[in-house]
């Protein structure tokens, strides 16, 4: 495989909710083993964009290829689920299953694989995932007993347990203190390096963007208005853009 391989290819993607035009022709390419940070004000459609990638939301127009498959054409549940297992999604609020313990949360996706691993193997994978986020001791806790930062990390472990090729992070550090934010950002970087994961990271947190990004794109008025590396964007003399960095 070439290093430069494109894993997500989005062209002229459009989505409206009623009169509310949210995405007005988005273009984006994510390369293999790349961390792409997406920046944008609240309500500009960042979450909508990455939900389109896993078909939680159906776009109105445009092309959307993920891992060489046209997402629109995946009608059968089986094919779609196969793709979804290769694309991890970290939700803005973590979305841990409240009625299940941490162990059950992590086992849930494994138990629903068509070639379900054995009990022991599942237990091993649960521990491995928890170890990678440094929270083995929380295995028997319920989500209600965890702090915000722990929830995010457990959610990250649950996302990684299927060993996805791509991970979509929706504001992984919002609502956390700076120290914990930094830990999570570094975790994201480690995941990229250790497991060769390509990711899209949505964030308002510039420290997170600086640590994790290889490339950045900024949404304004429903399209990507700026792109470049963290340093390139910081040097730009656009007052609108400056607001993010201050």
């Amino acid at each position: 495989m070439k290093e430069e391989e494109i894993v997500i290819d989005i062209q002229e993607l459009k989505k409206s909710f009623g009169d509310n035009e949210v995405l007005k022709g988005m273009n984006l390419q994510l390369h293999r083993k790349e961390n792409l940070v997406i920046l944008g004000k609240s309500g500009t459609g960042k979450s909508v964009l990455i939900k389109c990638i896993v078909k939680l939301i159906e776009p109105d127009e445009g092309r959307l290829r993920v891992l060489d498959q046209e997402v629109k054409d995946l009608e059968a549940d089986e094919e779609l689920n196969k793709l979804r297992r290769r694309v991890g999604f970290l939700f803005q609020g973590g979305a841990l299953y409240d009625s299940m313990s941490v162990r059950e949360n992590l086992r849930f996706p494994l138990e629903r694989l068509s070639d379900k691993p054995s009990r022991d193997e599942m237990e091993d994978r649960v521990y491995e995932a928890l170890r990678s986020v440094g929270l083995e001791k929380a295995i028997d806790k319920m989500p209600a007993e965890l702090s915000g930062g722990m929830k995010k990390r457990i959610a990250l472990a649950r996302t990684l347990i299927l060993k996805p090729a791509i991970v979509l992070y929706d504001e992984p550090t919002t609502g956390l203190d700076p120290a914990t934010s930094k830990e999570i950002s570094q975790l994201i970087l480690e995941m990229q390096q250790e497991y060769d994961i390509s990711s899209i990271i949505i964030t308002h947190d510039m420290a997170c963007a600086r640590i994790t990004s290889n490339k950045m794109k900024v949404i304004r008025n429903g399209v990507f208005k700026y792109k470049g590396t963290y340093d390139e964007l910081r040097e730009k003399n656009d007052p609108w853009l400056r607001d993010f960095f201050e």
């Binding site: 549940d77 999604f89 939700f91 609020g93 979305a95 841990l96 996706p109 299927l162």
Partner: peptide, 21 residues
Amino acid sequence: AELGSMKVSEQIDAMTVSGAN
């Protein structure tokens, strides 16, 4: 109420994107 709060906190979406039905 249970499914409603799962929906609102995106737990149902999380199940869906993990490839579960």
